[in-house]
């Protein structure tokens, strides 16, 4: 009886919290903005997403036109300190046998104004690119080698603690995480981590100038093992830097990965610059260098990407690029790549 009363009291407190939170925003109407989704303030719910279609003509294989992905972004804040977020993605839609999977699915508990606890499936915080890898956010159709899915898994499944640090007038934050994808992400068939431990530090000199440090110790999962020692662990450290001003951008990411088996060691970086042209056209140039064993291939690869992007509206981008290089045909084939991406 006492237990029931306690449960009822707890439920009343929860409902009271929900009602008082909703009442603060209930006067704001439901709205839709292109590129920002449907917002339902009274329920603290937002549903939107993005899509990406591409035409690729690599020199080493056939040309391909595809609707690569449609992703739905769903965020819901049922309580002041609690928010749920999910990115549900479908890929290879033209095959009519497309998988639907949760690219991200997590819960954030705002323990204090500066501390957040994240639980679930979320993006691996290494560098900048992986955290904003959605097609409408990035400038090129192709992804740099140093953060492609064969260098490290883009996702983690586990727990992450994030804390904003008070360093004078600057923003900075630090996060630590523990992953157990091998046990938790049983539905995802893509190669990923078996388990991992790591951290990320981000420092913002201003809204325009940021740098970060990353570290991760991980074991790849069974799908990725091939002839490797299943229990071999990798250590990866990364440094990233980005600067943006008036349409100009400069971005650098570098990594060094070390493993004790045939996965070998690998180091590399990319440097990408963006220059605004006219009428919302942008010119992009990227240089990449990778030296070591990438995805079990020993290589010293140089890659150059020259690209043009047009952003006629904030949520929409059209991209075209030519990629070429040296010793790149196996891991980043030369060719023409183009795409159209849009937030909805």
């Amino acid at each position: 009886m006492i237990r029931r009363l306690k449960s009822l009291t707890l439920l009343c407190y929860l409902l009271q919290g929900l009602v008082s939170y909703v009442s603060a925003e209930e006067s704001l109407p439901l709205s839709y903005h292109w590129g920002r989704g449907v917002s339902v303030p009274a329920a603290n719910l937002n549903i939107g997403g993005y899509l990406n279609a591409s035409y690729q003509q690599p020199e080493t294989s056939n040309q391909k036109v595809s609707l690569d992905s449609v992703s739905f972004l769903i965020s819901w804040n049922p309580f002041e300190r609690l928010r749920f977020f999910s990115e549900v993605e479908t890929e290879k839609i033209e095959t009519l046998n497309f998988p639907i999977q949760a690219e991200r699915l997590y819960m954030d508990w705002l323990a204090s104004p500066s501390t957040t606890v994240r639980l679930g499936k979320f993006l691996t915080p290494i560098g900048h690119w992986n955290l904003i890898h959605a097609a409408p956010l990035i400038w090129t159709t192709s992804r740099p080698i140093v953060n492609d899915i064969t260098t490290f898994s883009p996702h983690l499944n586990g727990l992450m603690l994030m804390r904003a640090l008070d360093i004078g007038n600057y923003n900075s934050d630090i996060s630590f995480y523990a992953d157990s994808s091998g046990d938790l992400d049983v539905f995802d068939k893509a190669p990923g981590f078996q388990n991992a431990l790591g951290g990320h530090f981000n420092f913002e000199f201003s809204e325009n100038l940021k740098w970060g440090l990353s570290f991760i110790n991980f074991q790849n999962d069974a799908i990725n093992k091939l002839s490797m020692n299943h229990f071999a662990r990798n250590n990866l450290v990364g440094v990233d830097f980005s600067w943006k001003k008036a349409g100009y951008e400069l971005e650098l990411e570098s990594i060094y990965r070390q493993a004790d088996d045939v996965q070998g060691n690998e180091k590399g970086f990319y440097l990408q610059g963006v220059v605004p042209l006219i009428d919302k056209f942008y010119a992009i140039g990227r240089y990449e260098d990778v030296n070591g064993t990438h995805n079990l291939i020993a290589t010293h690869t140089d890659v150059f990407v020259t690209a043009l992007a047009w952003r006629p509206f904030v949520p929409l981008v059209l991209k075209a690029e030519y990629r070429f290089g040296d010793q790149n045909q196996l891991i980043a084939p030369s060719g023409f790549y183009s795409s159209i991406a849009m937030f909805f």
Binding site: R36, G48, Y50, L73, I74, S75, R83, F85, I132, P136
Partner: peptide, 25 residues
């Protein structure tokens, strides 16, 4: 406050949208 026009801030809000953070009402 930010040293940027609201239009320039849209790039930032695009990134936040991808992380499930909506801009101010």
């Amino acid at each position: 406050l930010f040293g940027q026009t609201p239009d320039e801030m849209e790039t930032y809000w695009n990134e936040q949208y991808f992380h499930g953070i909506a801009p101010p009402y």
